[in-house]
Design a protein around this nucleic acid. Structure first.
Lengths: 147, 147
DNA sequence: GCAATTCAGACCAACTTAGTCTGCTTTGAA
DNA sequence: TTCAAAGCAGACTAAGTTGGTCTGAATTGC
């Protein structure tokens, strides 16, 4: 179980932006060159981020993307939900899949595990912002390099 | 992000066994009739569980499957890892994907999130056993029905 | 007006999932 | 000794998802 590359790439891009000055306008080209991603794919990811109001865009020459708010006000939860749909799919939750009769899961002893899992992940991702990540990066980088 | 049906079905089956007497031998047919699963698919799942030494099997007439140890000694982590491969795929972890050079992830600011995620899930699933689930089921069932 | 940029959406190959299917082997009991 | 009931092994497959690509707009600043 893992998140898709959309989330992975999206977070890398947002983190890149967070580390720049506030209101910094970044272009797809710039970010693709720095991070060595596929241009078309990143474009699509930014469309999703724009739809979720995490970034704004400006068309035309000197256009590009900027964060809609401070890095400290953009939580991981919001980003993951925008790119992935949800932090964790409880799957058998009746309210999330209307029309589907759940034969096994809804009332069974297994479901509470998934509810609890989602609860934990939501809480974790709600407590981490882009600023958290940007701030701890150098320190984290060192740790990893030493280990 | 969610676990596959292998894990879902596998847990339902194991929970079914846990609620029976210790050393109870269950057949695929019995469990399939009770839970309304596909026979062939459940067979495959039990092969995996046997490979992970979570159940033992006995061939031939009056054969079937039994838990290898007490429900209280079978953690969710062990079951999920057997059926899913891992509780959470940190993805860019160099040691898990030898030969693959990670361009973006390994040293970047995003990776610690996934490390932390895996840590939390591992800890959660290590603290829950089949006995926990079997024990809390009736109570959980009530809660759900009331809500 | 032109070059740089985003925007929209159709398209697609490869992979994964959730199974099915066929037939074999082992075993207990009649 | 036979036979039916079980597990065992593995090839196969349809449908869905992932991780993109590609074409061609529309918009904007210089």
């Amino acid at each position: 179980m893992r998140y898709t590359t959309k989330t992975e790439y999206g977070l890398v891009c947002l983190l890149y932006m967070a580390k720049k000055m506030p209101d910094y306008v970044v272009t797809i080209k710039e970010i693709v060159q720095t991070e060595n991603f596929s241009e078309s794919y990143i474009e699509k990811i930014f469309q999703t981020l724009r739809g979720a109001n995490i970034v704004t865009s400006h068309k035309g020459k000197n256009g590009g993307y900027a964060l809609t708010r401070q890095p400290s006000e953009i939580t991981l939860k919001v980003v993951i939900e925008a790119l992935e749909g949800h932090t964790f799919d409880v799957y058998c939750e009746p309210e999330t899949r209307e029309g589907i009769v759940c034969n096994h899961f809804c009332m069974c002893g297994v479901r509470p595990i998934w509810t609890r899992t989602k609860q934990m992940l939501d809480q974790l991702y709600d407590s981490i912002t882009l600023a958290t990540l940007a701030g701890s990066e150098s320190e984290v980088r060192q740790k990893v390099l030493v280990a």
